[in-house]
Simulated assay, not measured.
Amino acid sequence: MAELPDAAEEAPEFCRRMARAVEYELASLRAVPPDERLALRTERFRRLGSAL
Results as ranks from 00 to 15, higher is better:
A39R: 12
L48V: 15
A8I: 01
P5R: 01
L40Y: 06
E25L: 11
L52G: 14
R17F: 08
L48E: 15
A2K: 01
R47A: 11
P5G: 01
R37K: 06
P12K: 05
R47N: 07
R20T: 09
E23W: 03
L26E: 09
M18N: 09
G49H: 09
A31G: 02
R44A: 15
S50A: 15
A2Q: 01
L4R: 03
A21T: 03
C15H: 10
E13I: 07
R30S: 04
L26G: 01
L29I: 05
R46V: 13
Y24H: 13
E25V: 09
R44N: 13
F45Q: 11
V22W: 04
R46Y: 10
E10R: 07
S28Q: 11
D6M: 00
R16V: 10
R41Q: 12
D6H: 03
R37M: 09
E13Q: 09
R17L: 14
E23F: 05
A39W: 07
L52H: 13
E10W: 00
P34S: 03
L26Q: 10
E36T: 13
P33W: 02
E3K: 03
R44G: 09
V32I: 12
G49R: 15
E36I: 05
R16E: 05
E13N: 05
L38N: 08
L40G: 11
D35R: 11
L48N: 10
V22S: 08
M1N: 02
V22M: 13
L40P: 01
L26W: 08
S50M: 11
L52S: 15
E25D: 05
F45I: 14
E10D: 12
E43R: 15
A27W: 04
S28K: 09
R20P: 05
A11E: 15
R41F: 10
P33K: 12
E25I: 06
R44Y: 14
R37S: 08
P12H: 08
R46I: 12
R41K: 12
L38S: 11
P33D: 04
A11K: 11
A7P: 08
E23C: 07
P5I: 00
A19D: 07
Y24N: 10
A8M: 02
E36F: 01
L29P: 00
F14S: 06
P5L: 03
R41L: 14
L38P: 01
M18E: 08
A39E: 08
E25P: 00
E23I: 06
A8Y: 04
R17K: 10
D35I: 03
R41M: 13
A51R: 14
R41W: 12
R47V: 13
D6L: 00
E13W: 02
E23H: 02
R30I: 04
D35A: 09
A8F: 07
A2D: 00
A11C: 14
P33G: 04
F45L: 15
E43N: 14
C15R: 13
L4M: 08
A51M: 15
R30W: 06
Y24D: 11
R20Q: 13
V32W: 04
E3N: 01
R47F: 12
R41P: 01
P5Y: 00
R46E: 13
E36R: 11
A39D: 04
V22I: 14
R30N: 05
E10C: 09
L40M: 14
P33F: 00
